[in-house]
Amino acid sequence: MMKNAFPYIGLGALLLFPLLGFSSYLMHIAILVIMWSVIGMAWNLLGGYCGQVSFGHAAFFGVGAYTAGMLYSKLGLSAWWGIPASIVVVTLVALVIGYICLRLRGPFFALATLSMGVILRITAENLVKITGGDIGIMIRERTWVEKIWYYYIILALAVMTFLVVKQVVGSKLGYYFVAIREDQDAAESLGIDTTYYKTVALCLSGVITGLAGAFYTNYMGYIDPKVVFALHDISIITIMVVMVGGAATFSGPVVGAVIMVLLAEMIRSIPKLGAAHHTFFGLLLIVIIIFLPNGIVGDFEKIRKLFRTRQEQP
């Protein structure tokens, strides 16, 4: 009973959260946490359920962000049109990336997607006439000054993503994904068209990430290739969000996003440690992989046991 009500209570709390009148900084953190949950859930669909570990989600994020940015800078439209437009653009990009990368398996797929992210970054840096190159794109008119509307938009996106992931994972599609993750050859021999379903997973995951990217352009008001196509600060953090929280769990990416965003803000706020935030992330990643390979949610039992045995020993 409690378990069934929990998602609604959580949603209600999230809906009421901005009405409590928090400072704009806290709202910013909340928006970032929700945005990273969206990206984490998207990655989880591909990496956690379908087993295709992508190191290049910045490619989708960046394409989404640049779709919104270029609609504004080149066509003079509102950058909000980027949200519907990015669905089409990112799907096309995902199909191309899938065609090239999905013929590889395991770590090779991972690295191939990583290079796709880098290719897109370098392309965006060099096509100065179209993308503005290193200067980036600046959205001059902000839609709202208060953060509350951005909060509700990203929250709506997050709820939608959560429902999509839940639907997909509970359906036949989700079982195909898990079958592919567990043993691709066995799945193939059972008549699952693995390439087709991997492409579906990649497109779904990419589109959701691209939507987050388009939102990012609108919210931040400024993008450049080094930020939105960043390897460490987007692609790797995406993986960390899922790894820390727990791969192939519903709540894992949310937990991971909360921890990662808060950790990043905490480290950055300490002046001397700010430069070392990659070291902390790297060490956290190493520790998580060695001790909690299925993340905090996935290995929750392990953590609980650890505390119990400690209590029992006087």
């Binding site: 990496g47 956690g48 087993g51 570990v53 190191f55 395991g106 770590p107 991972a110 690295l111 993750r181 460490h232 790797i236 993986i239 790894m243 791969a247 192939a248 430069a275 070392a276 935030h277 990659h278 070291t279 992330f281 790297g282 060490l283 956290l284 990643l285 190493i286 992989i289 060695i290 390979p293 299925n294 996935g298």
Partner: peptide, 23 residues
């Protein structure tokens, strides 16, 4: 270690690389 994501070792080397570059 048994884990859901099979590419754990690769992600681990990413972590090592991040630490080295940042140091």
């Amino acid at each position: 270690v048994e884990a859901i994501i099979p590419e754990n070792q690769v992600i681990l080397t990413v972590g090592i690389g991040m630490v080295l570059a940042n140091l």
